[in-house]
Design a protein around this nucleic acid. Structure first.
Lengths: 208, 208
DNA sequence: CCGCATCCCCAAAGATACTG
DNA sequence: CAGTATCTTTGGGGATGCGG
């Protein structure tokens, strides 16, 4: 994109992340590194050329790094750098504003589990510290951990989780939006491991 | 712009304010209502057609309102609505990020006094409550007020200011960036009214 | 399959001239 | 002053192709 050419920190920020899809790429990387195709799936509507261009831009701006994981599965993943993680307050401010004043929800909007889970990260005291859970929604898998300052969520499988909970996209949406209780969802969820832990996880996903 | 079509508050926010120039229009309205031509001047590089399109978009999105001031000078001004003012945290987060990670400053960047002053608004306890100042930089005029929770800045002339301080763009930049002291700037400033008040104002503009 | 690059087309932005 | 009209240029959406 062309620079605004203004000596103003707002416009200088937008010179870097003001391009279409740019901030949404960062949103996708909030829960950890992702592969190109997973980014494509998390950004429905983006063209493959646009995504690769945006990743190149963000990489040369020092906001994203491309890393190749070691064998035996040499996949390349994209990851937010320090500067990229520093955009979290921007994303959070946009999220807060969008909830209240953004475009109204349309019934054919695309939807992803990670979009519902990201705002729950760093929620205070929702889960016992040290507990590890695996949450599966559709083909998305997340590791949820209880930490002393709240809960953390990352994309990918969990190591030795206390419980594995699998539920549908609709159930997750109902749960996080408050239109269903943890108890409601529990009956339709597929639970593996400690039942008590699974209950903790479901309660942690419901609004306070 | 085309909607992202995603049920995510971040993208739903960007559906409304993600267009080029949109957030910068809100930046220009942070210090109060502005006329079309003043917006043009505060947004160097924007085309007249693009600005009018953006204002129309933002108005129909309920973020900006167009108001015609009563006679004898029937000028039309644009003003941020409640939803527009609610974008302040977004602008502030972008400002913070841009300071540290944004595009580096170029020597031919355009520059405006208001871009330097906006981040100073609502600064805590910088000026005695109730005091009123007028600050003139080039052809931009601002009203600065001491309030109990900090200082407030608005565009336009002040009513019965305790002091009127006029200084150059370079001096303001030097002052707010810390490369010049209030004492340095004072000698080159044009001061009208209470000298003590003028000193207060200059000190309030310098970094803590 | 994954990770793009290329191509074509259209919509939006840039630039400038002009008007009520 | 406050825009509209017009033209050019750029960037994004969509499809396809292609090497590893």
């Amino acid at each position: 994109m062309k620079s605004y050419g203004q000596r103003c920190p707002v416009s200088r920020a937008l010179d870097v992340v003001g391009d279409r899809w740019a901030l949404l790429v960062l949103r996708e990387l909030e829960l950890g590194p992702k592969r190109y195709t997973d980014l494509l799936d998390g950004l429905p509507g983006v063209g493959t050329n646009v995504l690769s261009a945006r990743l190149r831009d963000l990489e040369s701006a020092g906001i994203v790094t491309k890393r190749t994981l070691p064998p035996p599965t040499p996949v390349t993943v994209y990851e937010a750098t320090e500067a990229g993680r520093a955009l979290r307050p921007v994303l959070q401010a946009l999220r807060d504003w969008g909830e209240e004043y953004g475009r109204p929800i349309a019934h054919n909007d695309a939807i992803r589990a990670s979009w519902m889970l990201t705002p729950l990260a760093r929620r205070k005291g929702a889960l016992p510290s040290g507990r590890v859970y695996e949450l599966r929604v559709g083909d998305e898998v997340f590791e949820v951990r209880g930490a002393r300052d709240g809960l953390s969520i990352a994309g990918g499988q969990a190591d030795h989780p206390d419980a594995v909970v699998e539920l549908g996209l609709g159930d997750l949406h109902a749960l996080t939006s408050g239109s269903a209780t943890p108890r409601d969802v529990r009956r339709r969820a597929d639970i593996d491991g400690d039942d008590e832990a699974a209950d903790q996880l479901l309660r942690a996903l419901a609004p306070v």
